[in-house]
Design a protein around this nucleic acid. Structure first.
Length: 954
RNA sequence: GCCCGGAUGGCGGAACUGGCAGACGCGGUGGACUCAAAAUCCAUUGCCCGCAAGGGCAUGCGGGUUCGAUUCCCGCUCCGGGCACCA
């Protein structure tokens, strides 16, 4: 310490609230909360029922954060925004008398943990444990009031035991479309055996099938099934990925490696069975509308019709899906996806009579079969990126086959083209160029006929018309749509198709079944073994199936798109080969060597928080009912009352978790139809970054603002705005903020920056505002020189009482809406008001200070607890009742209202609060300035709203 | 391209159901205290004209509805996000 510093330190009062004192207070209270088990939320019974038992009689509130991946980098100031928000809300709700469940687990399996482990060369178990410890320390220092008993880790065998158990529930179920819910698979076999249900696969009668055929049938109906389907194979990551994990450029979301479609046998979960319910139940949820919309779009329900087109010269027909059956009369050609199974069957050996353009580039010099083969090769070789880069020029080739338009009876050519996707609808379309832009482009490219079946408006520019209008050219001997609008035409055409057995109404979805296996080490092993015929479930009694300890756990990656997946677990040969008794005597089996995707653990962690130490069940049913709210009356929709997290999980995690929850609901394991009743997306904290004249990032900390510019030393630098991270050299950590100001200041600043759902820039310069507020609050209560409290029992003057009660009313309203920034503004005002009293009278009134501390406690819990205790209370204020306002003190006797002339404010007058319109007008006219402005002018109209304003129109 | 969301002082932001735009904080300016500085306290601070009284202009841009619009409607611009040949 320099002499100057020493001198300065001597001037600062001994008991000032500075970072050093704040840190001491924070340590003290964090320790005390821990030893007194302040935030242990009791269950109604069971292992977590012994402490604070009386609170289990209160009504429950479940507040949840999207739990973090414990990466090696630790937290920066952007991470805890949502965690602090939920903590404030949860602490507030405790003071309202709720039994609040708030905990923080760790999403410990998955790619980030595995990649970090691969980089550092240590076992993921070790690095994950270290990272979790770091996260826990950082989170603890923020003063978050979690129940520490419930902070599960998904990579813990006692946790994934039950992830595997839930997988078995899914595996042992099927979807009963008639009942519209999942049911145990044993009920399906029982009904088939009893003959009360017939197989739905057009095969032999159930009684005529042998054991292997029956087992195959049942396996194909499970909610978890193995399918050889085109999957997203990513050699660069050495694993397959879900559609949701592949971006528009055909690359992996993680790592940005190329992804290839190829058929592979993989585990699939039948989420498509739930498509309708996943859409319908969104209406019951208190979620942001944009998120609901994203889920609806992702599921992509569309209503339309299936139509059959007979292929000329064969007994085959092509089935298409269309949302516009009303345009069938305008279908002048057809297109199949290049991989469509009928392509080989309908393609002739020789070209029929046809325009040369139809044969295009691929068919010019070749036979139809050669042309089709050449085009298929061309289409398969294109990456998604190339397709996008081409600007969507339509390509394709005529197959040489013709089909019959069922409405017109005309022969129309059948093409293959890559603008038709195998994965959607039937992989085949009827092309109506006049009413579809893509078909129009293709028709122009290949000189195909275009027939309008909808009358476009007079000013229409001449290309495909996709709007509404009367049908034209749409009649045959049996049906006429002419003159009808789109909706009526659709109805009439669908009826005709159905009655004439040429088609039927249907619904399709963009949503695909969920690809559920990964070729990874650091994930949950499947509770599945194989015999010669296929998969067998491992019985519950043998769970958990623990991950074997591998030395080499890295995935097998490759640049070769033809490389085959090689799961790391296959290397654990002693683990893979097992002898088990699955009820029919000891036999040899092979274990499943894929692992579950990262989403598995995060699909249900909120359920394990309820009963984390239960070894007999994933959650005790009575405990589940208590936290679902089912024991408090009413019909709860969502288990969790408030779920806060980033918008990046709008579809993936939130859709998967809803799906699992609904399966568990159908099977009677949970009592709500939805997991998350209210969802809130917190914004992001970003920060400024700076580049020097060479374009390199420089440490943002060292940059100073001067004369409207930014400088590092004396060199000017350019300012950018972006994510907080090492690459932009703009990282600010909670640890340094806590060191410099204390956790309460840090929490308050994060909450004060703006509304919780908005993104905002971090500006360390602004932190001092809330720091000053806390210092002033400290001085309101404590004499800085002596450290003694100077709060007394003086009565509140009327003015102070009004300010106090207005503040209470506003704070309650704003906290409910998670409007913490305005809560803080109100508390600043109250604190400043009380400071005025301290300045004039030397002491602060207890009647104002106590409610102020109680209202501040959720936001800045440490200083609030400390002052609460210093002014004479022995216990924690965590469960003190939140202040209640006196409505009588909010009633104003007079009101100051503006007086406008022609909409411009010209004066303000004070009237009785209950003055009627006439009285307001009279008072306004009596105002000297208004009288002057109105003198000699004819008042055309007077708008007088009692208590609001008076407006004269002249 | 389609679908969402946003734009308010030098900065972060506030404003209930159409009724005083700019709460609260940062920063700035002036002052008190101090040998001085820091800290603290007080005052002031949207922009323009004016000594002042006062006036004018202002919520991305252009229109509209209304006595009155940050708020509602129409048409744009820019920024952020989602989806992307889904028949």
């Amino acid at each position: 310490m320099t002499p100057a510093d020493t001198g300065a330190a001597n001037d600062i009062p001994k008991h000032r609230y500075d970072a050093r004192l704040a840190n001491a207070i924070e340590q003290h209270w964090q320790d005390r909360w821990e030893t007194e088990r302040t935030f242990w939320a009791p269950n109604p019974h069971g292992l977590l029922a012994d402490v604070n038992a009386e609170r289990a009689a209160l009504s429950k509130l479940y507040v949840l954060d999207m739990f973090p991946y414990p990466s090696g980098a630790g937290l920066h100031v952007g991470h805890p925004l949502g965690f602090i928000g939920t903590d404030v809300f949860a602490r507030y709700q405790r003071m309202l008398g709720r039994n609040v469940l708030h905990a923080m687990g760790m999403d410990a399996f998955g790619l980030p943990a595995e990649q970090y482990a691969v980089q550092t060369g240590q076992h993921p178990r070790v690095t994950t444990a270290e990272n979790i410890a770091t996260y826990r320390d950082q989170l603890r220092s923020l003063g978050l009031a979690h129940d520490p008993r419930r902070g599960v880790s998904t990579a813990d065998p006692s946790y994934y035991h039950w992830t595997q158990w839930i997988f078995l529930q899914i595996f042992e179920s099927w979807y009963d479309a008639d009942a519209d819910r999942a049911r145990p698979i044993t009920e399906l076999t029982a009904e088939l055996d009893a003959g009360t249900r017939q197989p739905d696969d057009d095969g032999a009668a159930w009684s005529a099938r042998d054991a292997a055929a029956r087992r195959d049938y049942v396996d194909r109906h499970r909610l978890a099934y193995i399918d050889e389907a085109p999957v997203n194979w990513c050699p660069g990551l050495g694993t397959v990925l879900a559609n949701e994990e592949v971006n528009a450029e055909g690359r992996s979301e993680r790592g940005n490696f190329p992804v290839f479609k190829r058929p592979l046998k993989q585990w699939m979960l039948r989420i498509t069975s739930y498509a309708d319910r996943l859409i319908a139940d969104l209406d019951r949820l208190d979620w942001p509308e944009p998120i609901k919309l994203m889920q609806r779009n992702w599921i992509g329900r569309s209503v339309g019709a299936l139509v059959d087109f007979d292929v000329d010269g064969t007994d085959l027909s092509i089935r298409v899906f269309t949302t516009r059956p009303d345009t069938l009369f305008g279908a002048t050609y057809m297109v199949l996806a290049p991989e469509h199974e009928l392509v080989d069957k309908i393609t002739p050996n020789e070209w029929p009579r046809c325009p040369q353009e139809w044969r295009g580039l691929f068919g010019a010099e070749r036979s139809p079969r050669q042309a089709v083969a050449a085009y298929r090769e061309f289409a398969a070789a294109k990456s998604e990126l190339e397709r996008t880069a081409e600007g969507r020029v339509k390509t394709g080739v005529f197959t040489g086959a013709y089909a019959v338009n069922p409405a017109t009876g005309e022969y129309i050519p059948v093409f293959i083209a890559d603008y038709v996707l195998m994965g959607y609808g039937t992989g085949a379309i009827m092309a109506v160029p006049a009413e579809d832009e893509r078909d129009w482009e293709f028709a122009e490219e290949f000189s195909l006929p275009i027939v309008r079946t909808k009358q476009p408006p007079a000013d229409f520019d001449g290309k495909a018309f996709t709007g509404d209008g009367p049908s034209i050219n749409s009649a045959n001997d049996e049906v006429s749509l002419d003159g009808l609008d789109v909706a009526a035409s659709k109805r009439k055409m669908t009826d005709w198709l159905e009655s004439s057995e040429r088609g039927e109404p249907t619904v399709t979805y963009k949503l695909r079944d969920w690809l559920f296996s990964r070729q990874r080490y650091w994930g949950e092993p499947f509770p599945i073994v194989y015999d010669a015929y296929g998969p067998r479930a491992v019985p519950e009694s043998m769970l958990p199936i623990e991950l074997p300890d591998l030395f080499d756990f890295a995935p097998t990656v490759s640049d070769d798109p033809d490389a085959l997946p090689a799961p790391p677990l296959a290397r654990a040969e002693n683990w893979v080969r097992v002898t088990l008794d699955l009820g029919d005597g000891p036999k040899e089996y092979t274990r499943e060597v894929n692992t579950m995707p990262q989403w598995a653990g995060s699909c249900w962690y909120y359920l394990r928080y309820l009963d984390p130490t239960n070894e007999d069940a994933f959650v005790d049913p009575a405990v589940e009912r208590y936290w679902a709210g089912a024991t408090h009356g009413g019909a709860p929709t969502g288990m969790v009352d408030l779920y806060v997290g980033g918008v990046e999980h709008a579809v993936l995690h939130l859709l998967y978790a809803r799906f699992w929850h609904k399966v568990l609901f159908d099977l009677g394991h949970v009592s709500t139809a939805e997991p998350f009743g209210r969802l809130f997306n917190q914004g992001y904290i970003q920060a400024y970054a700076y580049t020097d004249d060479r374009g390199f990032y420089v440490e943002a900390k060292d940059v100073v603002e001067r004369d409207g510019g930014y400088f590092l030393d004396d060199a000017p630098v350019a300012r950018e705005y972006g994510k907080i991270g090492k690459s932009l050299k703009n990282v600010v950590t909670p640890d340094e903020m806590i060191d410099n100001y204390g956790a309460d200041t840090f929490r308050m600043y994060e909450m004060f920056m703006g509304p919780l759902d908005a993104s905002r820039p971090w500006q360390t310069r602004d932190v001092v505002g809330v720091y000053r507020f806390l210092q002033r609050l400290w001085r309101v209560c404590i004499d800085e020189d002596t450290g003694e409290p100077h709060v007394d029992d003086q009565a509140l003057d009327v003015d102070t009482a009004r300010v106090l009660h207005r503040t209470i009313a506003a704070v309650r309203g704003d906290v409910d809406a998670l409007g913490f920034n305005t809560v803080i503004a109100r508390l600043f005002e109250l604190n400043n008001h009380v400071w005025g009293i301290v300045e004039s009278r030397g002491r602060a009134p207890r009647a104002a200070v106590e409610p102020l501390l109680l209202m501040l406690a959720p936001l800045a819990p440490h200083i609030s607890e400390e002052l609460w205790s210093r002014i004479g209370h022995s216990g924690s204020l965590a469960y003190e009742p939140f202040p209640v306002h006196d409505p009588a003190l909010l009633v104003e006797t007079t009101a100051e209202i503006p007086v406008q002339v022609n909409g411009k404010v010209r004066a303000r007058i004070t009237v009785a609060a209950d003055a009627d319109a006439a009285a307001c007008e009279a008072a306004a006219r009596a105002d000297e300035r208004i009288a002057e402005l109105l003198a000699g002018k004819a008042v055309r109209k007077v708008v007088a709203i009692p208590g609001r304003l008076v407006n004269f129109v002249v």
